[in-house]
């Protein structure tokens, strides 16, 4: 499948700001399931800074914008050729070891309810891959997709208690549960090309990867009870949503920030 991406994020400030600095992780990962045909990342009126590939294999670019400014726009466009590897992150080069992803963070900390959920899902036995699948299904059942009830700082435990949430909450909960079972897990940010109904996902998407001995990292999207396939474009990873955020930025000044995001994905089958 060839997926085209047009993604613009604009930050508006209600006062004039002195400048802005951003760290962008907005580049398609390089692995056997993805081939970048064209890709461009620009910050309007911005100055490109240091760029590198980090230990997790993500390309990161620093940008800055000189003030005075009242908005900052990040414009991404490109085309990626994708292949269905049933979630397996084959051919991805990274240095960080899976064990590093056993560490919990505030949003991915497992409370008793998450630990119980993980253990009961795993109780059926089976190998790590089967357990990971059942975990993903259990979370899909326990947290119903519903936008607007959770926010950026909602933890996995809170989302489970609410029983509702969005892809970020599904991913956090899956990570928390996987770690209960001693399976390294991480947060993935990227895009999902919406098919038929389009109701269960946003184009800017997030899911989780679980490390399965023998297979490596495998992408699980609890929100859509599937593995990441050719409809998914993987951008970057981290311990949780904040750590894996495609855009981390800061503007200097006293203005309050609001954000507009438009993502348009198109696809052609080969």
């Amino acid at each position: 499948m060839i997926v085209t991406v047009n993604h613009t994020t604009t930050y508006h400030y209600d006062a004039v700001m002195r400048g802005a600095v951003q760290s962008l992780r907005l580049f398609p990962s390089q692995f056997d399931g993805q081939k970048t045909l064209e890709w461009s990342v620009e910050v309007a009126n911005g100055i490109r800074g240091g760029a590198f590939r980090d230990g997790a294999g993500d390309r990161v670019e620093g940008w800055s914008v000189r003030g005075p400014l009242s908005e900052v726009s990040v414009i991404v466009s490109g085309r990626v050729e994708t292949k269905d590897l049933t979630g397996v992150l084959r051919g991805h080069r990274e240095i960080v070891v899976p064990e590093a992803y056993l560490r919990e963070t505030t949003p991915t900390r497992a409370n008793v309810a998450l630990a119980d959920l993980a253990r009961s899902a795993a109780a059926g036995g089976g190998n790590a891959l089967e357990r990971a699948h059942r975990l993903s299904e259990a979370i899909a059942g326990a947290i119903v997709y519903r936008p607007g009830v959770t926010h950026a700082h909602t933890t996995a435990a809170e989302a489970l208690e609410l029983g509702e949430g969005v892809c970020q909450d599904h991913a956090h909960a899956l990570i928390a549960c996987a770690r209960v079972l001693d399976l390294p897990a991480r947060y993935i940010s990227g895009y999902l090309y919406a098919t038929e109904d389009g109701s269960m996902h946003e184009a800017a998407h997030a899911w989780a990867e679980i490390f399965v001995e023998g297979l490596g990292w495998v992408g699980f999207d609890a929100a859509n009870t599937c593995c990441s396939d050719e409809r998914y474009i993987r951008l970057g990873s981290g311990f949780d949503a904040q750590d894996a955020a495609p855009i981390r930025g800061i503007a200097q000044g006293i203005g309050a920030e609001t954000m507009d995001v438009t993502v348009a994905l198109g696809a052609t089958q080969q």
């Binding site: 600095v21 951003q22 760290s23 800074g49 240091g50 760029a51 590198f52 980090d54 990161v60 670019e61 620093g62 800055s64 904040q242 981390r248 930025g249 800061i250």
Partner: peptide, 20 residues
Amino acid sequence: LCFRPDSMLGIAGLMDVYRS
């Protein structure tokens, strides 16, 4: 932008410069 987002003591973007 790399560690604690609420830090007022550091320099935004420092780690990107460092790692590049």
